[in-house]
């Protein structure tokens, strides 16, 4: 059964203002507590610095941007490099004058900050639910190669799995990583292990003590992917 499409959440994390801190903390709360199974995040500076994998990931997922202020850095940056976002939230719009009681360092967080984080997180979660329900409706999506539809329609799930130390581990964007590497002409084998691992690490935390296990697992999966080409388009289970 196909897994539901993940929703990408990109926070501005603006350092100058408390609302930037709220954008970051609220996004983290959705990822960790409210919708951990259906959301992922991207690192905005890395995304804007030109990491093609990150930009491609955002092109293929419905994306919510969470900006601290009306300068809309996260929204503008995402739309510049990856197309229209599915939803744009602005902390100051959600909180109004309540944001004036917030702090820019979590060191100084108090009840006002906590309430602000919850209020924004709940708005993000509501948007995630709306997008998820939209994605589950029958729609005119491309039947093959849909991974590059270029909009936030929630087409194909861009997730793959690895067998690591006998356990199945879900890795966001794995099919896209393999597509990208394959298009670069990278052959399967030992030489590509570190390159693949570095890309997987962007989307999936890897414990340093499990690094070698992941290195071997991702290389094996890529070999299998290459053997299946050109019949399948990144059909990783």
């Amino acid at each position: 059964m196909a897994e539901p499409t993940k929703v990408g959440i990109i926070a501005c994390s603006g350092e100058e203002i408390p609302a930037g801190t709220i954008s970051r903390q609220a996004t983290r709360r959705v990822l960790e507590l409210l919708r951990p199974q259906s959301t992922v995040t991207l690192c905005l500076p890395l995304f804007l610095a030109g990491e093609e994998q990150e930009r491609r990931f955002a092109r293929q997922h419905p994306t919510i941007t969470v900006d601290g202020c009306d300068k809309l850095c996260a929204k503008r940056g995402t739309e510049q490099y990856s197309g229209q976002v599915a939803a744009s939230l602005v902390v100051t719009d959600i909180l109004g004058s309540r944001v004036e009681k917030c702090h820019r360092s979590t060191r100084a967080f108090d009840k006002a900050d906590e309430e602000a984080v919850w209020a924004v997180a709940e708005r993000i979660a509501a948007e995630v639910d709306t997008l998820a329900s939209r994605a589950s409706e029958p729609a005119a999506t491309t039947s093959s190669g849909g991974a590059s539809c270029g909009c936030a329609c929630g087409g194909k799930s861009a997730e793959g799995s690895l067998r690591v130390n006998g356990e199945t581990v879900t890795v966001p964007a794995l099919p896209l990583i393999f597509d990208h590497v394959h298009k670069q002409g990278v052959q399967s084998g030992d030489a590509c292990q570190d390159q693949l691992l570095d890309m997987v690490r962007i989307y999936h935390a890897i414990d340093p003590c499990e690094e070698q296990l992941y290195r071997e697992a991702v290389a094996k999966a890529y070999t299998e992917y290459c053997q299946r080409r050109p019949q399948g388009v990144a059909e990783i289970e």
Partner: peptide, 30 residues
Amino acid sequence: GLISREAALHVADTLMPGAADTVCLALLVT
């Protein structure tokens, strides 16, 4: 990432107030 942020804000807000500040990296990059 959070450590980097909190270290920078500690300098700007507490250790060198007035002598140091920060800017939004996203604003710079856009």
